[in-house]
Amino acid sequence: MKALSQRRRSPLAVFALLVIGLLVTGGLYAVASGSVSKAQADETTQTVNGSVENGSKLFAANCATCHGLAAEGSDSGPSLVGVGAAAVDFQVGTGRMPMQMQGPQAPSKPVQFDEQQTADLAAYVASLGAGPAIPDEETIDISGVSDEELANGGTIFRVNCAMCHNAAAAGGALTRGKFAPSLAGVSEQHIYEAMVTGPQNMPVFNDSNITREQKKQVIAYLKHIEAQGSPGGQALGSLGPVSEGLFIWTAGIGLMVAFTIWITSRHA
């Protein structure tokens, strides 16, 4: 027992602890960054044909309370006439709708409807009035984007999107509890739909503002930086100087305090 406690106090123990700490941090990150790329692989676009009739039933059961029986809107939800299938696919497909409770903004949460049901709802809402359609695979196929176009996508992203979503697409705050979400892990289809429909407080970026080609470039840019990861190590949330400052005051100064206490303590 005594030997153990003595060994625990050994200066080597501090060192070993440090090494372990550093390795664990690095290791954890490696695992974390691995899981991101796995999540990406799961995202595949499938086109499912929806039925207006089924959609109408689903709508009446799940959406009409807020949006009105004929989707004409009410005090608690906007009219959905003319929002298009893309809006439904985005809102329902990311779990934002149906909303759990009224709040400043509908956050994304686990999806409540399967693909077929989502497609049915989309078909129904699309039948109410013309609006942006769900993009086909070709529209959001970013495999053909050249390096030059990718860089252009980055420029467009910085001018039109980074002020809300952050330059590294990590998200940011809006007024009164609203926020622009992080774009990590969002599928190509949903990014595209968000641009054309302007969900909630996001502005609409129609094709005359940002062309279809440019939208593809923006998506390609986002997917590129997401896949690339952070070359300098753990990105600390990509939140900029605030998280860096917080880190130096906690981990940095904490480490220094630990070292100074060890240095000035008396050897047993």
Binding site: M163, L174, T175, N201, V204
Partner: peptide, 21 residues
């Protein structure tokens, strides 16, 4: 700073640097 954040429902413009609205 560029006051670039436009909230299309509230019609507010927000500056991301010091939150002038």
């Amino acid at each position: 700073c560029p006051v670039a954040l436009y909230e299309q429902q509230t019609h507010h413009l927000l500056c991301p640097c010091h939150q002038s609205t």
